[in-house]
C-alpha cells in the first residue's frame, strides 16, 4: 500500500516536471501576483443603436396603421433609397424585421430582439464573426484594455449598414510631407 502511494507520488512529480514551460521566453519578469491578469473579464459597454435610427420607433412614427406587405416588390414610398445588398436575392424585410412589431427584430427561431441587440440576429448567420466580436477581436473597441474603467464595444450595425454590410471605400488622408514645407514650396 505504502509502496503504491510512493509510486504515485513519483509519477505525479515526473508529470509536473514534464509540463512544457508556459510562455517562458516572453515572461522574463512575470510577477507571481500578475496584477492585471484576468482583469478584463468585466463585460464591455455596448452603446444602444436605437438613438441612431432615424424615425424610431417605427410603429409610432409610420407603421401604426399600415399592414406590412411580406411580398417582394419595388419600394416606392419610404425606404426606396435603401439598396438591399445583403443575402443575395433571397432576403426581404421580414427576414430580419418582425412583422408583428416593427420596433423589434426577429431571430430565426421566432424570438424577438431589440435593435440594440442586433448582434444576436447577425450572429445567427455570421457565427464566426460573432464569436470573434464577443472575444473582442473583431470590430472597434475603445476605452480601457485592462478593465479598470469602461471598455466600449460597438455593435455590428455601428460599423456595417445591415442593408448593405460591405464597408464603403474611404478617402485616404494625405501621405506625410517629409521635407520642410517652405523648402518644398521653394522648388515649385
Amino acid at each position: 500500500m505504502g509502496q503504491a502511494l510512493q509510486q504515485l507520488v513519483v509519477a505525479l512529480l515526473l508529470l509536473s516536471a514534464c509540463r512544457a514551460p508556459d510562455h517562458e521566453a516572453m515572461t522574463s519578469h512575470a510577477d507571481a501576483t500578475l496584477a492585471r491578469v484576468g482583469a478584463n473579464d468585466a463585460p464591455p459597454t455596448i452603446p444602444p443603436r436605437t438613438p441612431q435610427i432615424a424615425l424610431f420607433p417605427c410603429v409610432e412614427q409610420c407603421h401604426k396603421d399600415r399592414t406590412p406587405d411580406p411580398h417582394k416588390r419595388e419600394l416606392k414610398e419610404f425606404h426606396s433609397l435603401k439598396h438591399l445588398e445583403h443575402g443575395d436575392t433571397t432576403f426581404w424585410c421580414n427576414f430580419c424585421h418582425n412583422d408583428d412589431n416593427l420596433d423589434t427584430l426577429r431571430l430565426l427561431d421566432g424570438r424577438t430582439v431589440s435593435f440594440n441587440e442586433a448582434y444576436r440576429l447577425c450572429g445567427e448567420c455570421h457565427g464566426d464573426k460573432r464569436r470573434d466580436w464577443q472575444a473582442g477581436i473583431h470590430g472597434l473597441q475603445s476605452g480601457y484594455w485592462d478593465g479598470s474603467h469602461e471598455k466600449v464595444r460597438r455593435s455590428c450595425t455601428a460599423c456595417h449598414d445591415p442593408h448593405a454590410p460591405r464597408r464603403p471605400t474611404f478617402q485616404a488622408l494625405p501621405a506625410p510631407t517629409l521635407r520642410l514645407k517652405q523648402e518644398v514650396q521653394g522648388h515649385e
Binding site: 510562455h23 516572453m26 515572461t27 512575470a30 500578475l34 492585471r36 491578469v37 484576468g38 482583469a39 478584463n40 473579464d41 472575444a135 473582442g136 477581436i137 473583431h138 470590430g139 472597434l140 473597441q141 484594455w145 485592462d146 460597438r154 460599423c159 464597408r167 474611404f170
Partner: peptide, 16 residues
C-alpha cells in the same frame, strides 16, 4: 474605423 488594431497584455490568457 475598421477595428483592425488590437492591443493588450501578452501575459493575460484572456486578453484580446
Amino acid at each position: 474605423p475598421t477595428g483592425s488594431r488590437k492591443f493588450g497584455n501578452l501575459l493575460d490568457p484572456n486578453s484580446e
